[in-house]
Nucleic acid binder design. Structure first.
Lengths: 152, 152
DNA sequence: GACCTGTCGATGCAATTGCATCTATATCGA
DNA sequence: TCGATATAGATGCAATTGCATCGACAGGTC
């Protein structure tokens, strides 16, 4: 009667649970040392990796809703972590870049973040298991079977 | 230098992404037919499985924050999906139960939910993969190596 | 019983999210 | 060039979340 297999439903349930638990661990770790939420890290990392980006681009990479991203960038800009410039070749657009302070912030966040990842994931799975998990999860992460574009 | 292995970090990243993508699929499906958010389903399912429960108990099972659950139950009660009774053996407590309307609602939600799970998970993994994924994820879902209490 | 401490669940309030616009520009076709 | 339509990003507003606190009661001590 049910379209998804039992295993698929089980996988979904576990996914939700595991995510809730792991995310709570990570966010709690960051908060406990008064650091900003996880998304700040992600935004900063993308910006450092790819250079200044259009908000739209960030939105796609981070799967954030447009208005949420807009306000997230407001907050980050207010804190001096990112900078909004206007975009030369598109008058509607903006270009967002990490500031020096933003880069420094990301570096300060990493040890905390890393520790939490270890607690939430690393300490519970061995290398091979973690790799297998990542492999399976990656298949769920991209809309409509689009292959994740090459490098990371 | 980093405490978690590369694989652990990769697994974490994939977990976040996969969850975002899958959750978006499911919530969008529910919203597209004007059904309430996913959590309603979870609450109703727990209540049907385990009978009337204390909010505290639900909170533990669903990993919700206390105040959020309190208000979620407000909304569900306002919609007639659950019922709050006072608790005989503990004057502070309440007992929450699914109503008949709540059970009916859950049944209406299931086909939509199931379809979305199939789209987000079932169609992307075969049986064995889904089972393997569920197994790995379950190891992340419980605080501090507490074993998930027996049956499901 | 009075009192202290801990737990349960509710609630005020600020921060964040989601949704529906709104403005400014780009893009396309006549 | 003009007008219609589409896109980028910002913003008003309602709904939801997170946090701190509150009131009510349980459990223990004296």
């Amino acid at each position: 009667m049910s379209r998804p297999s039992e295993s698929a439903v089980l996988a979904w349930q576990s996914l939700v649970r595991a995510h809730q638990a792991a995310l709570a661990t990570v966010e709690a770790a960051l908060k406990s040392v008064r650091q900003p939420p996880l998304e700040w890290y992600d935004v900063l990392l993308e910006l450092e990796r790819a250079g200044p980006l259009r908000p739209r681009e960030l939105q796609g990479r981070l799967l954030l809703a447009q208005s949420n991203l807009s306000r997230l960038l407001d907050r980050m800009a207010a804190a001096g972590a990112v900078e909004r410039r206007s975009c030369d070749d598109d008058g509607r657009g903006r270009l967002v870049a990490a500031t020096q302070a933003g880069r420094a912030l990301r570096l300060r966040m990493w040890p905390v973040y890393a520790g939490a990842i270890e607690a939430a994931v690393g300490s519970r799975l061995d290398e091979a298991e973690a790799a297998a998990l990542a492999g399976l999860l990656r298949r769920l992460g991209c809309p409509d079977g689009a292959s994740p574009s090459g490098a990371g």
